[in-house]
């Protein structure tokens, strides 16, 4: 479980996160949605320790984040854009991450096989397409069978086949009891996978709870229209 306790973050004069209180439950898929610049990435990066909140505490499975790095062993992260050293090939990048973590056994290589990355192992990363790099990035996120997966717009660069392989994988991992946090702008995708939804607007939490609850609250429409209506209400207010 992740507990976010009064987190605030300011970049210059811009308040990106305004006193966020949240609980993200274990064994569920939680989607973070919100317009561009609403603070989604900053929130995710705070959980990863890439961004240090000005105020407040974050607990990941009971560990309070304080600059120590070991808790990240439980996390698999897939960034929005993946870049690796240009002259390394795919096999070397995978080996590098395993080597750095010192984990060579008990690996989950399902995605490597399903994405057909086996044939790409000898290719330098600079020669790969953006989509293939995303596949490598996804494979790395799942590789160490982590209890918590954080996926930042994971399907954005993937073709439909890869995207559906990836979604199936997410659903399988949820069934195994993994905690999954993802962001996306594709509402149908969130409707398909997410149990809970966190709706951020201007750095504040506007809604946090089960997807169904959001829909009934706003008036029983589909998710996309519900979210759009919530954004519109906010503009009027």
């Amino acid at each position: 479980m992740i507990k976010i306790d009064g987190v605030e973050k300011q970049f210059g004069s811009l308040k990106v996160l305004k006193r966020i209180f949240l609980q993200i439950e274990t064994g569920r898929v939680t989607a973070i949605v919100g317009p561009n610049g609403s603070g989604k990435s900053t929130l995710i990066k705070s959980i990863l320790g890439l961004v240090r909140p000005d105020k407040g505490e974050i607990y990941v499975n009971g560990t309070r984040l304080n600059g120590e790095c070991e808790y990240r062993r439980q996390i698999g992260y897939m960034p929005q854009m993946a870049h690796f050293p240009n002259n390394l090939n795919v096999g070397e990048v995978l080996y590098m991450i395993k080597d750095l973590r010192g984990e060579h056994a008990g690996l989950d290589e399902e995605l490597i096989h399903e994405f057909g990355l086996g044939q790409e192992m000898d290719k330098p990363l600079r020669t790969l397409s953006g989509g293939t790099r995303q596949k490598v990035s996804a494979a790395i996120a799942f590789l160490f069978d982590p209890a918590l997966l954080i996926l930042d717009e994971p399907t954005a660069g993937l073709d439909p086949i890869a995207s559906s392989i990836f979604k199936d994988k997410i659903i399988r991992e949820r069934e195994k009891g993994k905690t999954i946090i993802l962001t996306s702008h594709i509402m149908s995708e969130i409707e398909e996978m997410a149990d809970s939804i966190i709706f951020l607007l201007d750095g504040s939490v506007r809604f946090s709870g089960p997807v169904e609850e959001l829909k009934t609250m706003v008036g029983g429409l589909n998710l996309e229209r519900s979210i759009a209506r919530m954004m519109a209400e906010n503009d009027e207010a």
Binding site: L50, Y71, R72, P79, R101
Partner: peptide
């Protein structure tokens, strides 16, 4: 140029 690569490594259990 290594910005994203550094971010990737920072999300691993490695001290800054």
């Amino acid at each position: 140029n290594s910005r994203e690569y550094i971010e990737l490594l920072l999300t691993q259990p490695v001290k800054r």
